[in-house]
Design a protein around this nucleic acid. Structure first.
Length: 251
DNA sequence: AGCTCATGGCGAG
DNA sequence: TCGCCCTGAGCTG
């Protein structure tokens, strides 16, 4: 479900609805019950997004670390709402709102040190105002790894998923198989700037939009033919995920 | 009802 | 590189 933009959106919504309020926490599905009991009836200090990782801070330096993975979903309801589905891993509730989390890859309780360790292993997030492409460039400029693979490595750049990588490389006319070190610095800078622009747009629209003329809102991801030259889009596995590219337009 | 696929990521080998 | 974990939607029959 989510690439980084969704997580930022989620953090924003959690802050709007829960920040500074006392919340109930429970785990109908059961696997987070012990931890939920520890944060139950405490004040939610704030939610933070870094790439695809969400942390929700509670008083006493307790952090719920959530990674949605491929299947995780979050839903908001108005209190009192319905009984949670039995797959709900975590439900938070205050006087006005309910937050339900299902199917996360990861939902665990961190202390501040563990949260710092998490952040330390993540690369810059293009959505974050202070993120800088120079840090990334230093890490990859000598790498033989294909740029299409690098874009999914969260320790290099945080928050890019399978759609943004396909769309970014198509927009920049870069062949995903090109080793990172063959990119010129200025090319990578353009690629980074594209990610900053479109991932932030994704936050405000709450969806990935790179093509305003198509119902699918993508240029190449999920497409059968190239929107520029109409030739067949090539699909293959790159970095464990399905890549889409046009080898005529992406050299 | 059952199968397939999905915007992730991890650990084993 | 593969299998596995988490869940749900959309198809097929």
């Amino acid at each position: 479900m989510p690439e980084g933009h969704k997580i930022h959106r989620l953090a924003n919504e959690l802050n709007q609805k829960f920040k500074g309020t006392r919340v109930d926490a429970e785990s109908p599905q059961g696997r987070f019950s012990q931890s939920a009991a520890l944060i139950n009836n405490s004040v939610l200090v704030g939610a933070q997004a870094w790439g695809k990782h969400l942390t929700i801070e509670f008083e006493k330096d307790l952090f719920v670390h959530i990674h949605l993975g491929l299947y995780g979903r979050c839903k908001f309801w108005q209190t009192p709402g319905l009984q949670p589905k039995e797959t709900v891993r975590l439900r938070l509730r205050n006087l006005e709102s309910i937050f339900d989390l299902t199917g996360p890859n990861c939902c665990e309780l961190f202390d501040d040190k563990e949260r710092q360790e998490l952040y330390a292993r993540l690369g810059p997030d293009p959505i974050h105002p202070s993120a800088n492409y120079e840090t990334v460039w230093k890490k990859i400029k000598n790498s033989k790894v294909p740029i299409g693979k690098i874009l999914l490595e969260q320790n290099k750049i945080s928050g890019v998923g399978n759609i943004y990588r396909a769309e970014a490389l198509f927009a920049m006319e870069i062949n995903p198989n090109r080793p990172a070190k063959e990119l010129k610095k200025v090319e990578f800078e353009r690629l980074w700037d594209w990610l900053v622009t479109y991932m932030r747009l994704g936050v405000s629209r709450n969806r990935i939009t790179t093509n305003f003329d198509s119902a699918k809102e993508t240029m190449i991801y999920g497409k059968a033919e190239c929107p520029q030259c109409q030739r067949q889009v090539v699909k293959w596995n790159l970095g464990g995920r399905k890549m889409y590219a046009c080898f005529d337009c992406q050299k």
